[in-house]
Nucleic acid binder design. Structure first.
Lengths: 151, 151
DNA sequence: TATTGTTATACTCTATAACTATA
DNA sequence: TATAGTTATAGAGTATAACAATA
């Protein structure tokens, strides 16, 4: 975002959005997501893919539907996502019953998730740096509350 | 999001994402954006369109490029956005010089932005309800810091 | 009857590149 | 040389509907 205009300083414009929680939430989220996206790009993972690998590592045995429920991703959109991770050899499925398959990481997937975790931790630390540490627990709790407010 | 699975309670799964600021920021933002989207739908406005109208009302004379800079929207994506608002008669352009046009609301646009503002205020209040009021100013300040952390 | 997983499809948002005209 | 505005296009992310197989 280039704020350097010659004859007009848009950073000093009267801002009716200044105190809007939803607006700043959106701006902060998209800033962090953009950074996470480019941070994960060298590892050839998108944020959602990395999140899924981390979730499977912590909870081997989850099904595809479980993951969708936890992350708020529709079943229809999980299929191609998991297909990509499977095709690249990061996960393996084992039959639970006729319709469900439990998921686990492969050796390759374990290597990948370690790389991803390192990248994510550095990304998180980078953004936390500018914040008051004492505020963080309450802020994350508030974000969880907001995330759970299904309209 | 249906969390009601019969034999597995995904809400009690070990959650490695629990303390991730970026993750909860994304979840909270998408929850609020989804609500704002459906709240504005009856007024036939999308969140970004409403935001643009509010910004023009507070700053008549801004150009399309100014708005893009303030809201972080690329010029290429501003064109169809403004075209829609112009076609619907909410804004008017007046020539500044050969390449810039300053923007203002029409009568119709003023009516529209009042409706939008009312909807947005109610939406904000609904989400703030669940939060500690004392936390909000610090939280919004933190969000602004995060939003400004251009990686 | 409800759930798992799949396919197809459409719509929004965003990102890039190329072009014009103006300054 | 840089900026304003436009057009076209491609990639994500997300939403719905339909379907088969299974519980």
């Amino acid at each position: 975002m280039d704020a350097g205009s010659a004859d007009k300083d848009v950073s000093r414009v009267p801002d009716p959005l200044e105190d809007l929680l939803g607006y700043w939430l959106r701006r902060a989220s998209s800033a962090m997501m953009a950074d996470l996206g480019s941070s994960l790009a060298p590892a050839d993972l998108r944020p959602t893919e990395a999140t899924i690998l981390i979730l499977i590592r912590a909870n081997p045995g989850l099904t595809q539907s479980d993951i969708g429920r936890v992350l708020g991703i529709a079943r229809a959109n999980m299929a191609p996502l998991m297909g990509g991770l499977l095709k690249r050899g990061f996960i393996q499925k084992s039959r639970v019953d006729g319709r469900s398959q439990s998921l686990a990481l492969t050796e390759l997937g374990i290597d990948k998730v370690c790389v991803a975790q390192t990248i994510i931790d550095a990304h998180e630390a980078r953004f936390r740096e500018g914040l008051d540490v004492a505020l963080l627990p309450d802020m994350i709790a508030a974000l969880r509350t907001l995330a759970g407010s299904e309209a």
